[in-house]
């Protein structure tokens, strides 16, 4: 069971009329800042993640690229994505991005989840799966604009990066940030991380990366995992990082307007049948009509 938490901003499948426990809300928003320009792709963060979270994914196959494992899984919550990109000037760039949950302010997974309390967002902004409530439907997979959650084949439950919510809760930084040997991963309040990112972007501008910038996409309300990109104008270079991630309109429709429309339709149908029955009365057949006619004839 999870520990008592009274700082939950958002709770999946929960009406605004019955909000989650959120009294302990005097908390700074946190963020992890990943400076892609400093990352050397050593995968120490992947190892630290497995270590801290007691995860041991199956040893996979080398498929001819550095990506290993080749994708996120229920037991690999972060993976390095390697992309070789040829720039206009002919130079080769090796772009390496640490992929994983972005901890959106407006999380698509939480919006799509049908199980009350299976996904929560803490006051510090971390989006966390409460796996004991997970029913394995995979709606979070469809809801996520970043293709992050994975369903375990072993227990039919969804998993992803927790941003080490257990470490953060006791004042520590996430395991990946703690272990990064080059300092590419920083952790702190979101405001501090935005400030730090500003300094880094300025330095990159000075080094000739005119389009360097911070990736904190506003389509999902901003994220609590942010990137410093040397090519912030072309995020798709970094293994298809979406340019303007948003919760899909199918999810918005399904979890948005369809619910009140359906509720009205239900009430209208039930009220219609009630008033029809009370107004018109039961539709009965006179069983002796036949005899009557025959007598007449």
């Amino acid at each position: 069971m999870s520990m008592q938490s009274q700082d939950i901003l958002k709770r999946s499948a929960t009406s605004a009329l019955t909000p989650p426990t959120q009294v302990r809300d005097h908390k700074a928003e946190v963020a992890k800042l990943i400076d892609v320009s400093i990352c050397i792709g050593c995968k120490a963060c992947q190892v630290a993640c497995s270590e801290w979270n007691d995860l041991r994914d199956e040893v996979g196959q080398n498929v001819g690229v550095y990506d290993n494992p080749i994708d996120l899984s229920a037991k690999s919550w972060t993976v390095m994505r390697f992309d070789e990109v040829q720039q206009e000037n002919g130079r080769l760039e090796w772009l390496i991005r640490k992929d994983g949950c972005m901890h959106c302010s407006d999380p698509g997974c939480l919006k799509a989840c049908p199980s009350p309390g299976a996904i929560v967002q803490y006051a510090n902004g971390i989006v966390d799966f409460q796996s004991e409530h997970c029913i394995g439907c995979g709606y979070c997979v469809a809801g996520c604009p970043f293709n992050v959650p994975r369903i375990s084949q072993e227990d039919n439950k969804a998993y992803k990066c927790t941003l080490c919510s257990d470490r953060v809760a006791v004042g520590q930084e996430p395991a990946c940030a703690k272990t990064c040997p080059t300092g590419a991963i920083s952790f702190g309040s979101k405001a501090d991380m935005q400030h730090l990112a500003g300094q880094r972007v300025e330095e990159l501008h000075g080094r000739g990366y005119a389009n360097a910038g911070l990736y904190d996409p506003q389509g999902v309300g901003g994220t609590h995992v942010m990137y410093v990109l040397h090519h912030a104008d072309r995020p798709e270079l970094y293994h298809n990082l979406p340019r303007d991630p948003r919760i899909s309109s199918a999810i918005h429709g399904w979890k948005g307007w369809m619910k009140p429309v359906a509720a009205v339709a239900f009430f209208a149908t039930l009220a219609g049948t009630l008033f029809h029955y009370v107004g018109v009365g039961p539709n009965q057949v006179d069983e002796h009509a036949d005899d009557h006619e025959e007598t007449k004839a």
Binding site: A112, Y139, A142, A250, I251, G253, W254, M258, A262, A265, F266, T269, L270, T273, H276, Y277, V280, P282, N283, Q284, V285
Partner: peptide
């Protein structure tokens, strides 16, 4: 997901109507 939810709601509404009419027509 969108179509499944929409079709499910529509079918439940149809069946409510079906069940009511069966109840109404003795």
């Amino acid at each position: 997901l969108f179509l499944h939810a929409a079709a499910g709601i529509a079918l439940i509404l149809l069946i409510l109507g079906h069940a009511y009419l069966a109840f109404w027509v003795k």
